[in-house]
Amino acid sequence: MDEPGSPLRRSVIVVMGLMLAVWVALYFFSFNEARGQADPAQFSFRGQSAKVGKKVFQAYNCMGCHTIVGNGAYFAPDLTNIVDTVGPAWLAAYLPSAGTWPTEALLGIQIERMAEEGLIEQKTLAAYYAAYPGARERIEQRGGRRANMPNLPFRPGEIDALIAFFAYTSAMDTEGWPPAVEARAGIVRQTRESLHRRAGVLSDAPQAPRNPREAPAEDAAPGQAAVAEPARANALPDGEHLAASYGCTACHSTGSNRMVGPGWGNLYGSERTLSNGSTVKVDDAYLAAAILEPDRQVPQGYVPGVMPSFAGKLKPQELDALVAYIRSLAQGDR
């Protein structure tokens, strides 16, 4: 048995020193600029830098549910390549009301805006879907359904900053992780269908968006939904349906509780205090203006820039129908 201070024990300390030297050398090798690793300073979105995006990512402890480069919790998907998968417009459509998967109408609005600003090249949904198949899959299978993520109170600019950050992480070289999917399409489809059946959601055929407050497990079969729809909407031909398909109900509940935006129950006819201190009565004209130009008269406690403008998206009858639907929620039978 060797004693303290024996040559053998001393040699351990020498080896330790040697390994420390290897360790330090590896550090410099790892962060050598010649390596060409993505640099967050090169990424920004609508004037928000990837660095600010990383601060937002940390501030909401995104890693506490998701993973980034595989590290974090294992409760929700890895976000490293999310921009490559779904593109910036889908993220902009999803994040303001993360509790509900966005619908095609919401995505369309974001694509149009970003294309106008020159932030993305795709001008149409079809082009966007071709560039980001992940967005198509999400819209077609999940659109309008409840998502597991909570609604988060993002402040103006924070979502843009997150997009810049995810653009940076998507550009990173992570040495081939996660491994590419090489499974046969048939097996993937089969497994997906069987899982969707078990989860009580339907697969393949594009979904008619349904009331997002319904948990996926409570979703009805397609035939039942189609029958139920007209019966519910007899007084107002398509207001309720429009609200779902434009994704309004991702943020607005039909009760009086606040999700992201104000609840619609008993909204009509109430007095609202605006952020400039003045008060306004919620009537047809106010509602129409709020839908077309949501940032002009923002009520107290809400931030501008969260709700997209629906000007040019809604036909006049559709706008009327939506206003009438919101009005009906204050009058009546619910």
Binding site: A76, P77, R146, A147, I187, T191, L195, A199, V201
Partner: peptide, 26 residues
């Protein structure tokens, strides 16, 4: 649960946690 997660999420590439990954790990 993790072994199932590796297969469904990484091998098959199914990434809808709510309806696919969670269901497989249920």
């Amino acid at each position: 649960g993790g072994t199932v997660q590796v297969f469904v999420y990484r091998v098959l590439g199914l990434d809808w946690y709510g309806a696919e990954v969670h269901t497989a790990m249920a």
